[in-house]
Every structure is written in C-alpha cells, then in structure tokens.
Amino acid sequence: MFDFFIYLGYFVLTIDLILYTYSFFRKKKANVFFVSYLAFSFVMQFSMEVMYHLRMNNLFLVNIFIIGQMILLGLFYKSIFNLKRQKNFVLISIVVALLILAVQFIIDWNQFLRFNLFEITLTSLLVVIFALIHFYNMLTESKEYYYISIAVVFYLLTSTVLFLIGNLTHNLSKEFKFLSWQLNSILLVMYYGFILYDWKKNLSKDVAN
C-alpha cells in the first residue's frame, strides 16, 4: 500500500507536468516558475527513486530538492505579487535563508548529506508565508492559483510536522516511524491532486480553444 501511494504521487506529478507544460508552451497561460518547479520536482523525484533502487544514499538529493523548492516556489509567488515591497520581501527572504543554510553547511558539511530538519522547517515555513501573503492579496484581487496555494500551505505544514514528529520519536517502534512516511506519501498525492485541480479549474478551458 505504501508503494501504491508513492507511485500514484509520481503519476499525478507527471500528469501535472504534462498539462502545465502544454498550457505554458502552447497557450502561454501557465506560470514559467511553476512549470519549472514541476519539472524540477519530476527530475528530482525520478533521480531519488533510481538511487533508492540502486541502494545509494540519496539524502543529498533530498536537500537539493528542498532548497530548489524554496527558490522556485518563492520566485513563483514573487512573479504573481503586484506590490514591490512583497516582491522584495520574497527575494530578501530567499537570500537570507540561503546564507543561513550556507553557514550551517560550512560549519558542518555533513548536514548536506543528512536528513536536515532545520533546512526543511526553514524553507517550508518561508514558502508557507509567501502563500499566505498571496491569500491576503486574493481578498482584493482575483483568486489566481487559489488551489495551488491551498496545497502548498496544507502539504508543507503537515509534512514538516510529520518529519519533526518522526525525528523526535526516533526511539519509538519502526512501525510508528513507517506510519509517518505512509501519511506523507498520501499527503503528497493530495498535494499534486490539488495542483491538478487548479489546472482543471483555470487552464483546462484554454486547451479546447
């Protein structure tokens, strides 16, 4: 059952990438940074899966993915913000976060080869803040990328909590820790599903035109 949700997540991500890429290149509708994020996610997920089956340590790819996710989703939100101060906030936040992580890696390079909870928490919370700013903007603006932002807030917050719980309870049974990974795989399917639903609501009508 665990493998089912993992591969279902990969499948939905692939569909997302195909549809958003089509909307970008053929209809010029999809956001370039969001399409780049989906392509980046696809490549990283595929690479991590291959390394896992080859019994290779893929945690450095996890760290690259987490940092890349922050950058690309940050640039995505920056591109749809209208206020200059909000755009500047995103850029400054990303730069500061990268500097903080650079200092951590310089002090202890092995952190880049481990499951880095500090990195996960920092980058996830930043992206959640960007999404919440977008929700605030939607009070007076059009509800563009509404379901994507719901997915971002819900998934990043819940997955971060699951990772933190899993780490804090490392002395508990393997079954309990495995359950947290199972829940995360289900959340990931829901995350990509919301992204697909946003395409259906806002971009699918352009395909028929």
Rank of each mutant, 00 (worst) to 15 (best):
N110A: 05
F5Y: 13
N57K: 12
Y37G: 01
I71P: 04
F46V: 08
F178P: 02
M44H: 02
K205I: 12
M138R: 14
R85Q: 14
L187Y: 04
I6T: 02
N209M: 02
S47D: 10
L19K: 00
W181E: 12
F81Y: 09
L179F: 14
L54H: 15
D198Y: 07
K28P: 00
L168K: 01
V90T: 06
S185K: 09
I150N: 14
F194A: 10
I18A: 13
K78R: 07
F176T: 05
F46C: 06
R55Q: 15
Y20D: 03
F154I: 10
F176Q: 02
F135N: 10
G68C: 01
F194I: 15
N171M: 02
T14S: 15
I100Q: 12
E141F: 05
F5V: 09
V207A: 14
R55P: 01
L61R: 03
V62R: 03
L54Y: 08
L172R: 08
N58S: 15
V50D: 15
H170R: 15
F135V: 14
L113P: 00
I66L: 10
F130L: 12
F76L: 11
V96C: 04
I129D: 04
K84I: 14
F33E: 11
G74T: 01
I18N: 00
L164G: 12
H134V: 11
V32R: 06
E49W: 15
A97W: 04
Y10Q: 15
L73T: 01
F154C: 06
L156E: 07
F4A: 13
A151H: 00
F33N: 11
Y197P: 08
N202G: 07
F115C: 03
W109E: 09
L17Q: 00
F154P: 00
N58K: 07
L196T: 02
E141P: 00
